[in-house]
Design a protein around this nucleic acid. Sequence first.
DNA 1: GTAGGGTTAG
Length: 577
Amino acid sequence: MKHVYSSFMRKKTSHLQYFYYSSKPHSPPHISFENIHNLDDAFKLFDVMLLRHPVPSVYHFTRLLDYVAKMNHYDSVLVLFKKMCFLGLPVNHYTMTIAIKCYCHLNLPGFAFSLIGSFFKRGFTPGLTTFTVLIRGLALADRTPDAVNLFRKIIREKVCKPDVIMFGTVIDGLCKTGHTDRAICLFRLMEKVNCKADAIIYDTIIDSLCKERLVDNALELFSEMIGNGIVPDVFTYSSLIRGLCILGRWVDVKKKFEEMGASGISPDLYTYNILVDAYCKEGKMEDAEFMFHRITARGINPNVVTYSTMIDGYCLQQKMDKAMDWFSDMNDNNVVPNNFTYNSLINGFCKSKKVDQALHLFRFMQSKGVKPDVVTYNTLMDSLYQTGKCTLALELYNEMQAKEIMPDTCTYKILLDGLCKNHHIDEAMSLLHMLENRGLSDIKCYTIIIDGTSKHGDFDTAQAIFDDLPSKGVKPNAHTYTVLINGLCLNKQFKEAKEYLVKMEEDGCLPNSVTYNVIAQGFFKGNKCVEAVTILKEMVEKGFAPDSTTFELLLHQLPAEGQDSTLMDMIQNFAPG
DNA sequence: GTAGGGTTAG
């Protein structure tokens, strides 16, 4: 064996010497991970370790597996783990816990559980760490209720005494599934069992509260945290800053940002990315660029998120030249664009009615090895349908299915709307029935169909679908009523349109600005100008403003209604600009 | 000696 090993070394010495070096001649080579940069290196090292005589201890193999796991190559870890088991190499509770983690990350919690059996077979007992990995694994696999049950069982059967990390794992699982309230209950329970919450626990809950826009509650918890002597870190401040950004509390954002610096905590790239994103979403591109320059001024390299966020900001404003400039900058700086980057650009081009450029990018991204996802397809299909290119849209739909990219609820809504707008009502109806059979139809689907059929001139169908909603257990919302009222106006059923305006309110759907604009425009177009003006007055009383189309129609009535002082007031109040 | 929890973009 030793001979095999040395001849192997001679052949491949140039590469393998990176992994081994001896401090003394004839001493066992030291195993080094320093020069492992990719999966290939890791597999080679594994093979070399197998050829060693004697075979290195389980400790070395475990470290190698952990190393590969930390590179997120969970499937490869399991390949190596199975190979170890197959070759009869020893594995211990450390090795098995890593394997459990990998099964969980691959969404195979069943296999993870079966490894618990192996624990006992091999004479090990799973402890806190292993159970924490399992709990987290269940949460990762969208099985948080099971994770919570396992946690309860561990406490009930006194399997082990949960520590702050296990509590933190369960709390995170609850937060990520929208149960922040339950997470807070568990957090309070910790105190009762003498388990002191640390910064990570506070950060998890604060972040979750901020995401739910309960920023004041988050700030309260932040004060409590400090009161309890827990020092906030960059995570805490980043979460709070993002929460304040979401609410547009810019003064508070600035204050928190300064407070953070004063506490000796430097914002990191995450923090900056949050701010860049917030400014971009707000359309404050100058502020976003300023933040970007602060990043580089601090010697931090912006990453794919930073660039993609800037690009998305310009795309949202349809400033495609600027967006493409940033795209070039990103490439010049060797930051590799990903799905998000391309999807933003494709969306930007679509919204600027440059579908050809969007399609060009769609092909380009694939040539660069970036795989389009459901969002890419949705964006393109919507744009193609809206510009009447049905054949191409359908081709993309088929292509997407061929690639086994699962359509989501957005996809179906795009198809429904696209088919209706392009006069394929029958196909839209059969799609709706398919969605009903699969339990995928919701009020938005029906609203699209009601809108589509009535705009297509088939108001009877629209009305029939609307009337059938209760029997399907679906409740119309303000949008549905608005679409129906629009249909009634198109069908010149003005009396009914007004009746539905009252009816929707009785049904708990308050008419909004769109509803009033739609009905006012319908009445103007049907030459029911006096009634249109009555509706406009009601609208203004309720605090809604006519949009530009309504306003133009109103102006046309000026000679006839010029004596009406209310009308004049309205015109003066709402003149655009 | 080795295994466990928290932050960014449609």
